[in-house]
């Protein structure tokens, strides 16, 4: 028969979740875990021998740990591992798959300002800063990281067709619209070389009434 002592402390799904290069290590404890379980996190670069303890994620009861700063070099790949310790059970360790933020990160929807006018709608896309810094400490935007990045803007016109605009610049204007009419705009970020596409930022906008008559 197996006493509790024999079974390891429950620990599963140790992995990185990455959005716009915010790299969070997450894990789960599983169904029969004890509330007294504590976790400790270590990480290292692929190719290094030594594991480094992540300060702030030692003997924590949390089930996530922010490793953004520790995994911020885009030319490196990383591993992280979690040690779970709980009363009456064997300690348990689990390691992530090899992690590359360039390959794994997903892109969040852009931050956009939609400005309605009488016969047009202007769309201003704001730059997206990331936690990644260049060698001289400058904080990089998504555009600086993905050189093929571009924006795709769609304006749905009464469910029959869409107006499309696309490009690398950040200011766009859909022209020739009917006054006092509602439109739905959807703006996505694409980085095709990495097969990355953000979810759309959606804005519902109504053109202004034409008061010139």
């Amino acid at each position: 028969a197996r006493t509790t002592e024999d079974t390891a402390c429950p620990l599963q799904y140790v992995k990185f979740q990455s959005r716009n290069f915010e790299n969070i290590l997450v894990w789960d404890s599983g169904p029969d875990s004890s509330p007294d379980t504590v976790y400790s996190v270590e990480y290292k670069r692929y190719g290094d021998r030594v594991w480094l303890a992540k300060a702030g994620c030692q003997r924590t009861t949390q089930k996530s740990c922010n490793l953004t700063m520790e995994t911020g070099n885009l030319t490196e790949l990383y591993y992280a591992r979690v040690k779970a310790v709980c009363p009456g059970r064997k300690q348990n360790n689990k390691t992530t798959d090899r992690f590359s933020s360039l390959q794994h990160t997903t892109i969040k929807p852009p931050d956009v300002t939609c400005i309605p006018k009488v016969r047009s709608i202007q769309m201003l896309i704001h730059p997206t800063l990331t936690p990644i810094r260049s060698e001289n400490g400058h904080q990089l935007t998504l555009e600086e990281i993905f050189r093929d990045l571009f924006y795709r803007l769609e304006l749905r016109v009464n469910h029959t067709y869409q107006m499309h605009l696309e490009g690398k610049q950040r200011e766009y204007e859909f022209l020739g619209l009917t006054p006092d009419t509602e439109f739905i705009g959807a703006i996505t970020i694409l980085a095709p070389m990495w097969s990355k596409e953000s979810a759309p930022y959606v804005c519902r906008v109504k053109t202004l009434p034409d008061r010139t008559w």
Partner: peptide, 13 residues
């Protein structure tokens, strides 16, 4: 340049 078919695309006003 139109990246994919099947969606009506506005060309010109």
């Amino acid at each position: 340049v139109v990246k994919s078919g099947n969606t009506p695309v506005h060309l010109e006003t």
